[in-house]
Simulated assay, not measured.
Amino acid sequence: MSTEGYDSSKSSFDDAAENAKENFKDAANSTQNSANEFKQNFNQTINQDNKKVLAGILGIFFGGIGVHKFILGYNTEGFILLGITLISIPLMCLIIGVFTIYIPVFIGLIEGIIYLTKSDEEFYHTYQLNKKA
């Protein structure tokens, strides 16, 4: 009877050891996957932050010609701001351009401030992922 108890406890110990090995392998794989996901998300966050700051600063200083829109990939809106500025220059002879030339400058200033005050995640989801105009 003693050998049966020994064999039974040895087999249950072997089963428990095998289960522990499998659980350890699963945990190691899960940890490796989590580390890889974190690394990818971290690299994306760094790129998002740089684009946010760049677009914000360019919006404040060069918003009148729409450079901040081109940086974010909004080419149509960038050409509209650039077009308003270029049309306003010759219209300055007729006094109308004196008023219209400031419109894209104010738009760029306001958008630049908005870009810089948003959080990184909010900026990414709003302007880069969802492409809000």
Rank of each mutant, 00 (worst) to 15 (best):
K10N: 10
H68G: 00
A27R: 13
T100P: 04
G73N: 09
D49K: 13
A35E: 13
Y6W: 10
Y124R: 13
S8H: 13
I65L: 04
E111G: 02
A20Q: 10
E122F: 08
Y127C: 00
L58C: 05
Q128N: 12
I60G: 05
Y127N: 05
K10P: 00
I89V: 09
I71Q: 13
Y124A: 02
G64M: 04
S11I: 11
T3C: 01
G56E: 08
I80T: 11
K39R: 14
A17F: 14
D49P: 00
G64V: 03
V67P: 04
M92E: 12
Q44A: 01
F70H: 11
F62G: 01
T45P: 01
G59H: 08
D15W: 13
D49F: 15
M92Y: 10
Q32Y: 08
L81H: 10
G78N: 09
S2Q: 12
G63D: 09
E77S: 14
Q40C: 00
Y115Q: 03
I103N: 10
A55S: 15
T31F: 07
A27F: 14
I96C: 04
K132Y: 05
F61L: 11
K69V: 00
N50R: 14
E111N: 09
V67S: 08
K52D: 07
E4I: 06
K21C: 00
L116F: 08
